[in-house]
Amino acid sequence: MTETLLFHVSDIHFGLENNEALDWFSAEVTRLRPSAIAITGDLTMRARHHEFRAAEDWIGTLDAPVTLDVGNHDMPYFNLIERFFDPYKRFGRMRDVVEREIDLPGIALVPLKTAVRMQPRFNWSKGWVTGRALDKCLAAIDALPKGTRVLVTVHHPLREVGTQGTALTRGGSKALAELAKRNVLGVLSGHVHDAFDIMEDTPHGPVRMIGAGTLSQRLRSTPPSFNELHWDGERLEVHIRNLEHVPDEAMKIDDVPEDAQPPRHEGEPVAPVGAVPRTDPPVN
Rank of each mutant, 00 (worst) to 15 (best):
R46I: 06
R46C: 02
R46N: 05
A47D: 08
A47R: 05
A47W: 08
A47P: 01
A47K: 06
A47N: 06
R48V: 01
R48M: 11
R48C: 06
H49G: 03
H49D: 13
H50V: 08
H50R: 15
H50K: 13
H50T: 12
E51R: 02
E51W: 01
E51N: 01
F52W: 10
F52Y: 15
F52A: 07
R53Y: 01
R53H: 03
R53N: 08
R53F: 01
R53L: 13
A54V: 04
A54F: 04
A55K: 00
A55I: 03
A55Y: 00
D57G: 01
W58Q: 01
W58C: 00
W58H: 09
W58I: 01
W58K: 02
I59S: 04
I59P: 00
I59V: 14
I59G: 02
I59D: 02
I59Y: 10
I59H: 04
I59K: 03
T61C: 12
T61G: 09
T61H: 14
T61A: 14
L62D: 03
A64Y: 02
A64Q: 02
A64N: 03
A64D: 07
A64V: 04
V66W: 01
V66H: 07
V66D: 04
V66M: 07
T67K: 11
T67L: 10
T67F: 08
T67W: 10
L68K: 05
L68M: 11
D69M: 15
D69L: 14
V70K: 07
V70T: 12
G71T: 04
G71F: 03
G71S: 01
G71M: 02
N72I: 02
N72C: 10
N72Y: 05
H73V: 10
H73F: 10
H73G: 07
H73Q: 09
D74C: 04
D74H: 08
D74M: 03
M75R: 14
M75P: 01
M75T: 11
M75I: 15
P76Y: 11
Y77H: 14
Y77T: 03
Y77L: 10
Y77S: 06
F78A: 08
F78R: 11
F78E: 15
F78L: 04
F78N: 13
F78M: 04
N79E: 13
N79Q: 08
N79P: 01
L80E: 14
L80K: 10
L80V: 12
I81Y: 12
I81M: 06
I81N: 05
I81T: 12
I81G: 05
E82W: 07
E82P: 00
E82H: 06
E82R: 15
R83S: 05
R83H: 10
F84M: 15
F84A: 15
F84T: 10
F85S: 13
F85D: 04
F85T: 15
F85N: 11
F85L: 14
D86M: 11
D86A: 14
D86C: 12
P87T: 06
P87E: 08
P87M: 09
P87K: 06
Y88M: 04
Y88T: 12
Y88L: 15
Y88Q: 08
K89E: 13
K89C: 10
K89D: 12
R90F: 11
R90A: 09
R90H: 09
R90V: 12
F91A: 00
F91N: 02
F91L: 03
F91S: 01
F91G: 00
F91W: 11
F91H: 03
F91Q: 01
G92F: 12
R93I: 00
R93K: 13
M94K: 11
M94Q: 14
M94H: 06
